[in-house]
């Protein structure tokens, strides 16, 4: 498995797309900090970008890589290697290289502008941490879609739809249900609804760390008392892990049974 991982990882790291991705984040980080020297403000702006772009790029990359490397995968399957190690290796290779681009691309400019001396370091670490998790989650989800759909066009379509659902539609449904049921106590509901969407979960985690929680008023106090405690923080990290493990598991199960 390690060999496959290493192969797909280096294959991707050497590929043009990884460089483009890395350069994009480098440019983004440097321009942000050039325009605004305040690290903590830059963290907020970055958050807006990360919770939208990282899942999108993870989704597209995952689908693209699966369809592109299909022939090579078939070749590998013909070899005496366990299927699970082939597919797990590929998954970790894709998600790992994307996460590395993200961390390097944003880390370098921030270190350049004195991250280690700044109080924003933990916010930034949390930002990269959730960013990396979002990459792993959405790559796994998109690989699932790809392996279930032989038709590339359909696969791409579903993948984009999936991203659209989590990034936009989910919040729309969330908002509507909050307004429709406004007469009822909604604290537990909004907490659960937040936990069930990795993008919302990441957004809330970062927002609450960014001193903006007072703005959230009473609801914010409920959230703060949940996410602010070690237990709540642990649960939300656990949720991110669960969000990664479930799609990886279904992906591997399908890969084991699939007739290539």
């Amino acid at each position: 498995m390690l060999k496959i991982l290493k192969y797909s990882f280096f294959d991707l790291v050497r590929s043009r797309w990884s460089y483009v991705y890395l350069l994009f984040y480098l440019a983004l980080g440097f321009t942000l900090l050039f325009l605004n020297n305040d690290l903590s403000k830059a963290v907020i702006t970055l958050m807006n970008i990360i919770i939208v772009l990282v899942p999108l790029i993870g989704t597209i990359f995952g689908v693209m890589y699966y369809y592109n490397s299909r022939e090579f995968t078939e070749l590998l399957i013909a070899q005496p290697i366990k299927r699970s190690s082939i597919f797990l290796g590929q998954y970790l290779g894709v998600a790992g290289s994307l996460a590395l681009s993200l961390i390097l691309g944003l880390g370098i400019p921030f270190i350049f502008y004195g991250l280690f001396k700044s109080a924003a370091i933990w916010d930034f670490v949390l930002l990269l941490y959730t960013g990396a998790f979002l990459t792993f989650i959405f790559t796994a989800l998109s690989l699932n879609i790809a392996i279930y759909n032989e038709n590339r066009i359909k696969g791409f379509g579903y993948a984009i739809l999936m991203w659209l659902f989590f990034a936009v539609l989910y919040d729309g449904i969330f908002l509507l249900s909050l307004i429709i049921f406004e007469d009822y106590p909604l604290d537990t509901f909004s907490l659960t609804a937040t936990l069930l969407n990795p993008i919302d979960l990441s957004r809330t985690l970062i927002l609450l760390k960014l001193d903006i929680s007072a703005l959230l008023g009473y609801t914010g106090a409920v959230f703060k008392s949940f996410f602010g405690t070690l237990l709540g923080f642990g649960i939300s990290i656990m949720m991110l892990v669960v969000w990664t493990l479930i799609p990886v598991f279904t992906y591997l199960r399908k890969a084991r049974k699939k007739d290539f």
């Binding site: 919770i51 990034a167 919040d171 909050l178 909004s190 927002l207 903006i212 959230l216």
Partner: peptide, 17 residues
Amino acid sequence: IVNRTPETIVLLRSLFM
């Protein structure tokens, strides 16, 4: 919207908003 239903502020800074 936040004025009407204060709980909706949890959606602050989301793409949908």
